[in-house]
Design a protein around this nucleic acid. Structure first.
Length: 466
RNA sequence: GGUGCCAUCGCCAAGUGGUAAGGCCGCAGCCUGCAAAGCUGCUAUCCCCAGUUCAAAUCUGGGUGGCACCUCCA
């Protein structure tokens, strides 16, 4: 397996620290609002990574945190006159439900910031004791970036002199402009935790370092985790700061491999909270099938920026439809359990830094070949069993094709309409039998008016929602 | 301003030195009562210029054009 390391900026052979065991940590959502397409993309990318790692025989422990302590959460709670817990539980629950709809499996561990405060206190204490952090007179605790000779080596940023001056003016209590808060003392009485350093709340960056140390890290290893992932925007400052804290506060570096997924743009525009053009997953799910969204969002390489638009989504749907039509063609038959050459090639493609384009090309070719053979006369018992095994493998490793193929094509159609369509198809079949094509075509037009298309096959007439 | 990334058919998108995968759209055909679905065939020399090399979409230099991060963000 090869992984592009976004810190070393090169594709590296993946070798876990601990033989066949792999630890993966991904920065999860801050639960103060609905998940947008970017959250979906990130969750999908790492869901795929875990599936591919497991298919390669690794025992993976995958952790994705829930940030449930944050100023924006508190702001929302105050605005809506609700408790913090009500807000975070509502959005955490929504996040889980929406992720399930796009086929994202739950991580093995889902640590919450509120459940990891002890680990944060411990890490902050270590950083203070080792002179990597200091407390100001108003109670804030900052990480002293000048104490870490390796600071900025992760993002390879060069500090700008003008920026330095501006920031120091804004926050005169900091020793260095780049110093970031580990602990914010809070005086407004809203939400505070009683820490050994006084009342306040933890800084964002310290949450992840502490959670990794508490829930995932192997203390004896050179790296806390094998792989650390997240959105491309997190490289700086979030991951830079996380790495600094872990490096200075523990006996190991944070991660051996870093993976950052590209962004989702909407019709060429960046989607961001400040621009207010977020496309929420829940809204997309009202219009599009979850699995189509999964296929579409995964259809472009994870590191590329992704431009969401309806035309490309429609093309993805057609591509996924072909998988389901083949599945429909073989419905109810028994599969073969032997691993096929196709499966080996598919895994090989995905093991090359998740080369999804090559993987999809292999799938298209497999589907076409299977259809071609099935079109010709003969029973092809072996091919059918093998193809079903291939489809099952695609489902396992990519999460495509998990539904009943008939339901997939008819989702969103109510029972009353379904009954009506079935009746019309029967009527049309009778007209066809009697060679009354004028009537049968008229009935077909009526069926089409329900927004479905029909197809005559040797097994009978089937219909699909358009 | 600093740092970094990218530029391949109408659209999406692989390919990082050996002579351009795949999908969508389009055209022609097979199949079909006609369709739909499925299948077959056809459709690019890789932003521009210069260089390195027996050989470059792939490497180097210079342009041009996009984009990202530097501020909460996946």
């Amino acid at each position: 397996m090869h992984i592009f390391d976004s810190v070393q900026k090169t594709k590296r052979l993946f070798t876990p620290q601990n033989e066949s065991k792999v630890t993966l940590y991904v920065c999860g959502p801050t639960v103060y609002d609905d998940a947008h397409l970017g959250h979906a993309k990130s969750a999908l990318v790492f869901d795929l990574l875990v599936r591919v790692l497991r298919a390669n025989g690794y025992a993976v422990t995958y952790a994705r945190n829930i940030t449930d302590i944050d100023d924006k959460i508190i702001k929302k709670a105050v605005e809506q006159n609700k408790s913090i817990k009500e807000i975070t539980e509502f959005y955490t629950d929504a996040f889980h439900k929406e992720m399930a709809q796009i086929g994202v499996s739950r991580p093995d561990l889902e640590p919450k910031a509120t459940e990891s405060l002890d680990a944060m206190y411990m890490l902050i204490r270590k950083l203070i004791d080792s002179n990597h952090a200091y407390q100001t007179e108003d109670g804030d605790i900052y990480f002293d970036t000048s104490s870490d000779s390796q600071y900025l080596t992760l993002s390879k940023r060069v500090q700008n002199e003008d920026e330095k001056i501006n920031r120091v003016e804004n926050s005169s209590h900091k020793k260095n402009s780049a110093d970031f808060a580990l602990w914010k003392s809070v005086k407004d009485g809203t939400v505070v935790f009683d820490s050994p350093f006084g009342a306040g709340r933890p800084g964002w960056h310290v949450e992840c370092s502490a959670m990794i140390e508490k829930h995932l890290a192997d203390k004896d290893m050179n790296f806390a985790v094998d792989i650390h992932g997240g959105g491309a925007d997190l490289l700086f400052p979030h991951h830079e700061n996380e790495a600094a804290q872990t490096r200075c506060g523990t006996n190991h570096a944070l991660a051996n491999y870093w993976m950052h997924n590209g962004f989702v743009n909407i019709d060429g525009e960046k989607m961001s909270k400040s621009l207010g053009n977020s496309f929420f997953l829940k809204d997309a799910l009202k219009v599009y099938d979850g699995e189509v969204l999964r296929f579409y969002l995964l259809s472009t390489h994870y590191r590329s920026n992704f431009n969401f638009n309806q035309e490309d989504l429609a093309a993805s749907k057609k591509r996924l439809d072909k998988i389901y039509r083949l599945k429909k063609r073989l419905f109810g038959l028994a599969e073969d359990r032997d691993k096929t050459l196709f499966q080996e090639e598919l895994l090989k493609a995905l093991s090359d830094d998740l080369n999804i384009s090559n993987a999809l090309a292999l799938i298209d070719e497999m589907v076409t070949h299977a259809n071609e053979t099935l079109d010709t006369a003969g029973k092809h018992k072996e091919l059918k069993a093998e193809t079903l095994s291939n489809l099952a493998y695609i489902e396992e490793i990519l999460g495509f094709g998990s539904k009943n193929p008939f339901e997939y094509f008819q989702s969103g159609v109510d029972d009353e309409t379904k009954t009506k369509i079935t009746e019309l198809i029967l009527k049309r079949d009778e007209a066809k039998k009697a060679k009354d094509f004028a009537t049968s075509d008229k009935i077909r037009d009526e069926i089409l008016s329900y927004g479905v298309s029909i197809m005559d096959t040797p097994q009978g007439t089937f219909w699909e929602k358009v």
